[in-house]
Amino acid sequence: MGILPMSDKFPLLVVLNPNSGTKQAREVWESIVQPALNKAQKPFTLIESVAQGYTQSYFSNNIKRIIIDLVQSLSLVNDEGNITRPSTATLQIMVLGGDGTVHEIVNGVLRGVEGTAFVSNEFRPKVELSIIPTGTGNAISTSLGVNGPQDALDRFLNGNTTPLRLMSVSTKTSNNLWEISVYTVVVNSYGLHCATVYDSEEFRHLGNERFRQAAMKNIENLKQYEGQLMFYGPLQSYNRSSASFVTAINTDNDDNRNDGLDNVTASLSGPFTYLLITKQASLEPGFTPTPLAHTSDEWMDVLALQNVGRDEIIQMFGATATGQHIEQEKVEYFKAKRIEMETPTQGRLCIDGEFLTIKGGYEGRVRFEVVPDVNTQIFGVYV
């Protein structure tokens, strides 16, 4: 009989978040996605999120079993009963939700396999995410140029993917070591952007409009946020004269507490009015704060405005739809691979729409990094 697969084709996992965005995910699933999957004879398993955090817990608790079943479906057995198992496997997950649901899946998968041999140099699965945009911002989909649920579905059926590079957010432990707190896929922010996302919860019923309402509230009562950014390793800065990124010149810095890492390349001393560290060009349709960012490359894009007033902020927002704000004098734009941040007093960071409170001073430092570990960078998205 030759070599035969041990089991049937493994199903697509479909994660449905009915509460994301304007709560359109179920309608999109029933009217567009499910009929197309049935027509394509694509088997699926539906996983419905019932509360915030459910999706992350689901994958954290079940990913090992899922990988075992996936490998089993791809293993081969010959006439003598000998089994050949693959060195890699591709898990397809379709997401009907927003960036927050993607964030939960990524962190659930990675926490579920942490400290195990389920992802290693000997066996490394790939996780391909088909994001059907039904969230509020849909930053990943917008950055990839996806024009709605049908376009996203067509891209999945065409089968082309690109890496979804993750950022890690690390904090100090009691013995002064770095520990990854969370992985992020969209944006880390401080200052006005963080305050806007935080205050937008009271306007959630307005959909995307909630961010504009919250931004207006915070601009009216504009604050400056004390803090310092330290860039380590390779750094590029946007040059308005050449309209391109150029390698930054190393600068002297009196901070010698590098924990054995590379020297500080440069620093921004603040105070910050607006600060973003992101992997996505757009955070929502019509808002492209880091227009030269790429989902799949190994850089974090950093947009900063230091100690500016209402006029400069309004001017910046007015040009973000086209990305022309990066030509404005007060806007600083960088590409970096590792950043540390320190605030003099307790501060709040926005981490993919969630919030992290950090202590003031050196002990409260936070590190942002494009994860170099190939056993963590296992995710891709359909393009």
Rank of each mutant, 00 (worst) to 15 (best):
A336H: 15
A336S: 14
A336E: 13
K337A: 12
K337L: 09
K337V: 01
K337Q: 15
R338W: 01
R338C: 11
R338E: 12
R338S: 08
I339Q: 09
I339M: 11
I339T: 09
I339V: 11
E340W: 09
E340N: 11
E340I: 05
E340H: 00
M341F: 03
M341A: 04
E342G: 03
E342C: 08
E342W: 06
E342A: 10
E342M: 08
E342Y: 03
T343W: 10
T343S: 15
P344V: 03
P344S: 11
T345W: 13
Q346S: 13
Q346L: 02
Q346R: 14
Q346W: 14
G347V: 15
G347P: 14
G347Q: 12
R348G: 08
R348Y: 10
R348A: 11
L349H: 12
L349V: 11
C350P: 15
I351K: 11
D352V: 12
G353R: 09
E354P: 10
E354R: 02
E354H: 03
E354K: 02
E354Y: 05
F355A: 05
F355P: 06
F355T: 07
F355V: 00
F355W: 06
L356R: 05
L356V: 09
L356G: 05
L356A: 02
T357A: 10
I358R: 07
I358M: 01
I358P: 07
I358W: 03
K359L: 04
K359T: 07
K359F: 00
K359W: 03
G360Q: 15
G360K: 10
G361Q: 07
G361P: 01
G361H: 10
Y362S: 08
Y362C: 08
Y362T: 07
Y362N: 05
E363H: 01
G364S: 04
G364E: 08
R365L: 02
R365E: 01
R365Q: 06
V366K: 04
V366F: 01
V366I: 02
V366H: 00
V366D: 02
R367T: 06
R367C: 00
F368K: 03
F368T: 00
E369Y: 00
E369C: 02
E369G: 02
V370K: 14
V370S: 11
V370A: 10
P372D: 15
V374D: 14
V374E: 15
N375G: 04
N375M: 02
T376N: 13
T376K: 13
Q377N: 09
Q377P: 09
Q377T: 01
Q377V: 02
Q377R: 13
I378S: 12
F379Q: 10
F379C: 08
F379D: 10
F379Y: 13
